[in-house]
């Protein structure tokens, strides 16, 4: 029934105009992602472009955030790794079109979003890093999985581990599937309730063009998974999917687990925590965070670090 109301609202309102963006929104011309000013604080390729032989063997993990988010989404993981002296290098990429202005976001495609991940990987390989892994939250997931579907790593360094945190293949809100029909009439969709902190780090307004791009990448990835995506022989995969997440449908985990082919079955793992938080790896800025959420986040971080440092 909610879809009928949405459709009716589209026809009645037909809000194809521009959103009302304020200076306190990331969407405006005042706030930008800090990685644009100081990339060396976020990207390992800029921080250590000439690693020593010892550093080249260290685990480096490229972490990619989700749709409308910024590098902020992986700050807590970076801080945790640093605080525990885990000896892991974290490279926080800012997806193309993100962390800038509404207009730049509106003009970007999912391939633009993915370019930042590719660029950082290639710069790390050129610099000599040999132990590279990936982590993607939400839309970061299909953007990374798509690289494997394209056999991007065929003649390059095989990633050691891929972590997928609430990766989106099927959205919780199924009206996204109809964005190609109703999107042009809508123009944009405003996000639901956001805290002041979240408004600094996430776009509040979602241009319908980018929602169509999101629908494209998840459809492409779903179809690739249905055909089977062969991962390189040495690549391990861990999927974490909250069971009560209102952004990504839990069936996404089934599709990824069944569709990813690793050299050995034990090289892929799936975990379905009884959590209602979308992307447990980011708790900062949320309105309601429980002790249980913090315990779960720590557990995920510890498992990720352990997997990154394992000799397998």
């Amino acid at each position: 029934m909610k879809y009928f109301i949405l459709i009716a609202a589209v026809f009645i309102i037909g809000c194809g105009g521009e959103p009302n963006i304020t200076d306190s929104d990331l969407d405006g011309n005042v706030l930008f992602d800090p990685s644009l000013y100081s990339p060396e604080q976020f990207l390992i390729s800029r921080f250590k472009p000439n690693p020593t032989e010892e550093e080249k063997q260290k685990p480096v993990i490229i972490v990619a955030h989700g749709y409308t988010a910024t590098t902020f989404e992986w700050n807590e993981f970076k801080h945790y790794v640093d605080s525990t002296q885990a000896d892991v290098l974290v490279s926080q990429v800012l997806l193309g079109g993100h962390g800038r202005t509404y207009q730049e976001f509106k003009n970007s495609s999912w391939r633009d979003w993915q370019t930042s991940i590719i660029d950082e990987y290639q710069l790390l390989v050129q610099a000599g890093y040999r132990n590279i892994s990936f982590a993607g939250s939400s839309t970061g997931g299909p953007l990374i999985v798509n690289l494997f579907a394209q056999s991007f790593f065929k003649n390059s360094i095989e990633p050691k581990h891929v972590f997928l945190i609430d990766p989106i293949i099927v959205p919780s809100n199924k009206s996204l599937s109809m964005i190609g029909i109703f999107g042009p009439m809508l123009g944009y969709i405003e996000s639901g309730e956001m805290t002041a902190e979240e408004r600094k780090h996430w776009y509040k307004f979602r241009p319908q063009e980018t929602l169509q791009e999101l629908q494209d990448i998840i459809t492409i990835t779903r179809k690739d998974l249905e055909s089977g995506i062969r991962f390189p022989n040495s690549t391990h995969v861990s999927i974490y999917k909250s069971l009560y997440d209102d952004v990504v449908d839990r069936v996404s985990a089934v599709m990824l687990y069944n569709g990813i082919e690793t050299q050995k079955p034990e090289m892929k793992k799936v975990s379905l925590p009884h959590s209602g938080i979308h992307v447990i790896t980011r708790l900062e800025g949320r309105a309601n965070v429980t002790e249980q959420d913090r315990v779960l986040q720590k557990k995920v971080f510890d498992e990720m670090i352990q997997d990154l440092k394992s000799k397998q």
Binding site: Y3, K174, G276
Partner: peptide
């Protein structure tokens, strides 16, 4: 056709789509 019941991500089957 239009499915009046679909999953909300936390219950039901996620592959039942509206249209």
């Amino acid at each position: 056709g239009y499915n009046l019941i679909t999953s909300d991500g936390s219950s039901g089957i996620g592959t039942v789509y509206p249209l």
